[in-house]
Design a protein around this nucleic acid. Structure first.
Length: 203
DNA sequence: AGTGGGATCTGT
DNA sequence: CAGATCCCACTA
C-alpha cells in the first residue's frame, strides 16, 4: 500500500475540464496548513466551474497578470480579491494553455472539530460561501499560484472511505444549477452542490 | 492617470 | 437592498 499519502489528490486528477472536476470535487476534503502549524480541514460541498468560452471566466478576454495562473498546469491555486474585502479560492484545471478553474464555494466542517462550542447552525455556516471559506482558512492572495500538494499550505484529499470525512454514499446526491453573482454567463449551469448540506452558500 | 465594476457578505 | 473597500482591466 502506498505510501505516505494515499488520499492526496495529484496533479493529473485536476488535468481535465473544469466542468468534469467541479462535480467530482464535491465530497473531497480541502486541507489548510495554517501559519501557526494548525491543520484545518473541510469537506467541499459546493463548487463552480469557469472555463474556455465562458464570459464569466476571469481569463475570458485575454491573459493578464492576475489570471495568468489559470493558463498554467492544473493543480495550482488561484486566489483573487473580490469587492475589496473578500478572497476567493480556485483550483486550476485542464491542460496547460487552457484557462480554467473551479471555484470552491463552501465547506462542511468535520464533526469533531474545535468549534464544538458554537451552535450547529452557526458552525455549519462558518465556511458557507467563497469569501467566508477563505476567511476561515486564512487564505489570501499570498496563497495564489501555489501547487496543491502536501507540504504546501493547501492541498486536497479524496474522501477517506472508512474515516469520518466521508459522506455517506446513501445520501450523496448532487444538484447542478446556475452560478451565483454573475452578470455575464449567468444562465450557464456550472454550479454543483451536495443536496441537503447545511453548509451550501445558497440554494 | 483616472475610473467603474466585481465569481461577496452583513446588517437594515 | 445598500454599504464596505480595493484591485485591476479598460479607456484615453
Amino acid at each position: 500500500m502506498n505510501l505516505a499519502q494515499p488520499n492526496v489528490i495529484e496533479q493529473q486528477w485536476f488535468a481535465r475540464p473544469a466542468t468534469d472536476v467541479a462535480p467530482d470535487l464535491i465530497g473531497c476534503v480541502l486541507v489548510r496548513h495554517c501559519p501557526n502549524g494548525e491543520l484545518l480541514r473541510g469537506t467541499i460541498v459546493e463548487t463552480e466551474a469557469y472555463g474556455p468560452g465562458d464570459p464569466a471566466c476571469h481569463a475570458y478576454r485575454k491573459r493578464t497578470t492576475r489570471n495568468a495562473v489559470m493558463f498554467g498546469p492544473a493543480g495550482y491555486s488561484y486566489v483573487y480579491l473580490i469587492y475589496g474585502m473578500y478572497h476567493c479560492f480556485n483550483v486550476v484545471t485542464d491542460r496547460e494553455g487552457v484557462a480554467s478553474a473551479v471555484l470552491i464555494r463552501a465547506l462542511a466542517l468535520p464533526d469533531a472539530d474545535s468549534h464544538s462550542d458554537l451552535s450547529p447552525t452557526t458552525r455549519a455556516r462558518l465556511a458557507a460561501g467563497p469569501g467566508k471559506l477563505c476567511r476561515w482558512l486564512e487564505i489570501d492572495r499570498s496563497l495564489s499560484q501555489v501547487q496543491l500538494v502536501r507540504g504546501q499550505p493547501l492541498w486536497i484529499e479524496h474522501p477517506d472511505r472508512n474515516g469520518q470525512q466521508a459522506i455517506s454514499p446513501h445520501s450523496f446526491e448532487l444538484v447542478q444549477t446556475t452560478r451565483i453573482g454573475l452578470t455575464q454567463g449567468a444562465e450557464i449551469p456550472w454550479r454543483w452542490y451536495l443536496k441537503g448540506s447545511a453548509a451550501v452558500s445558497r440554494l
